[in-house]
Design a protein around this nucleic acid. Sequence first.
DNA 1: ATTTAGTTTAACCATATAGTTAACTTTTGT
DNA 2: ACAAAAGTTAACTATATGGTTAAACTAAAT
Lengths: 207, 207
Amino acid sequence: MSSETESSSTEQKIFDAARDVFQSKGLEGARMQEIADKADINKSMLHYYYRSKEKLFEKVYELSIIKLMPQVASLLNEEMPLDMKLRKFSAKYLELVKANPDIPLFVIHEMNKNPSRLKKFIAKEIGKRVQPFLNQIKEEREKGNTVNLPPEQIFVNIMSMLVFPFLARPVLQVIFDMDEKAFSEFIAVREAFMPDYLVSMVMNKEL
Amino acid sequence: MSSETESSSTEQKIFDAARDVFQSKGLEGARMQEIADKADINKSMLHYYYRSKEKLFEKVYELSIIKLMPQVASLLNEEMPLDMKLRKFSAKYLELVKANPDIPLFVIHEMNKNPSRLKKFIAKEIGKRVQPFLNQIKEEREKGNTVNLPPEQIFVNIMSMLVFPFLARPVLQVIFDMDEKAFSEFIAVREAFMPDYLVSMVMNKEL
DNA sequence: ATTTAGTTTAACCATATAGTTAACTTTTGT
DNA sequence: ACAAAAGTTAACTATATGGTTAAACTAAAT
């Protein structure tokens, strides 16, 4: 992943470096010089290819969200029984976040500082993909197949279980005294029990 | 709360302003001038009372965490049956976070950028308070009274359900098209069902 | 070979920002 | 009443940072 074989284009190197730096430091914390250093190019190239810090950031932000969230949300739209969908969603979502563990916090943090940016990008996009899923839950709820909660609450419960550990990772690592390996193992355990557990939580079945 | 009656001391006004600015903008995003403006004092006073931005930040960080987290964690230590404890914890925790809705993201974000800061402050402090709770879960698990998961996982599940909505608030507000009032209502609904729901999730009882 | 467009570099610039200084005012202690 | 201490202010400094510029270099097209 980071074994730069001097192959990729300058523009790509800049983007990759910017993604790393922005995701770990945020917009304000990132330094153009640091991005240039990490990309191993002259700082002027940042402006040559992306005009400004803001523009570069938006590119990173856009691709981080727009390429990832729809992948996830589209899963929710497939025609499938609720329990199977929950299991698949759990697996797919954890797989994606494991591969991009910094993105949830990045998105949530930048969203807090500039909520309009997300609105600009996704808003309806995501909303429209989530809505069918909420409807499916609603139907099942009316048939008495789910726990008796509003679909929005159920959805938030699901996302909570999947995302929170990645957001709180540094805190959890301190509290439970886990190194990187231990944390990976912790997530692996979650991957194992989460499909059944979500079904139980949502559809109110004993494990 | 914000009806400044020109009463509090300069030092306190600085701290309050700094808390607001740091919590909404983070360490990097905060500007000393903005803090001074919000406190309605000369910028030099910041340095007079707190020497440096870093020092001021640490004061805010320390009091935000050290005064809040133990309040919560100590609840976990009381002698009480697990189900009752879960209900009380849910109520108390949501009450505290409702009163300080910016703190979870503030802590988690700054933790990511500087994990050693938390270590310095809490580390053992929190760990020691959580441990007895984990032990209690472990005992109940051995008696077959809980869902069959490691206590750490159960703890994370609980925290996920309680904290995540506050972290993801801006995202949720966009996805579900909620204004402030609607979000408060959303949280109120969670407060209502969460005690029973946590007991069900942890102790594997039907609702 | 020469032109041309694209790419890269080093040296600059303007500005914002954390921090300092020194003069001034108010409060407190005697 | 006086002096010392604490508090406050405006002006300033040093530096970091995003951004610009113009010249140099490269490679492809003619």
